[in-house]
């Protein structure tokens, strides 16, 4: 079945089953690989993207549920003021280690700041607890979100 998805401002038509998760449409069909596969069951947050500004776990979001809403991925989040501020803060504090989870971390953080421009530690912990990092970069992530919020 053909679906038109609007990824980072570009409408693209894909021919897949209706239940195909947005993650695999992005990665395997469209070749946009910055969004990562971690667990496939919405437990790790690595696949987080925005759909009309709302953070979703793309591994459990069927393409048929996305419609023509605006999908934003890590490749384009830097074009928003919040995304850019986060990426700069991420570099300033040297947040990443292996980097595999960081696309999802930044997408979740961007959604948090859009909703809560000056988050407290508790706000950050609550929102970001769904994004797992095997390197344990949590302390720097929290500090970088505070820095970006300034």
């Amino acid at each position: 079945m053909a679906f038109t998805v609007n990824v980072n401002g570009i409408p693209q038509t894909v021919d897949v089953d209706a239940d195909t998760p947005l993650l695999w449409v992005l990665r395997d069909v469209l070749g946009i690989s910055g969004t990562k596969f971690g667990c496939g069951v919405a437990l790790c947050g690595a696949c987080t993207v925005h759909v009309d500004g709302v953070p979703v776990r793309s591994c459990v979001t069927p393409v048929s549920a996305v419609g023509e809403k605006a999908v934003t991925t890590i490749e384009a989040v830097g074009e928003t003021p919040i995304g850019k501020a986060l990426q700069q803060a991420w570099l300033e504090l040297d947040v990443v280690q292996c980097g595999y989870c960081q696309s999802g971390q930044i997408m979740s953080a961007a959604a948090l700041l859009a909703r809560t421009p000056k988050p407290t530690d508790d706000d950050i912990d609550q929102t970001m607890s769904g994004n797992v990092c095997r390197c344990g970069t949590y302390q720097r992530i929290r500090a970088a979100i505070h820095l970006a919020a300034k």
């Binding site: 910055g34 596969f37 990426q87 570099l91 990443v96 980097g99």
Partner: peptide, 21 residues
């Protein structure tokens, strides 16, 4: 010093093993 490969890990550019096409 800051991690040299840091910039490409914050915008999805890094090619991990799973990204090989």
């Amino acid at each position: 010093v800051k991690r040299l490969e840091g910039p490409e890990k914050i915008d999805g550019r890094t090619e991990f093993g799973i990204d090989v096409r």
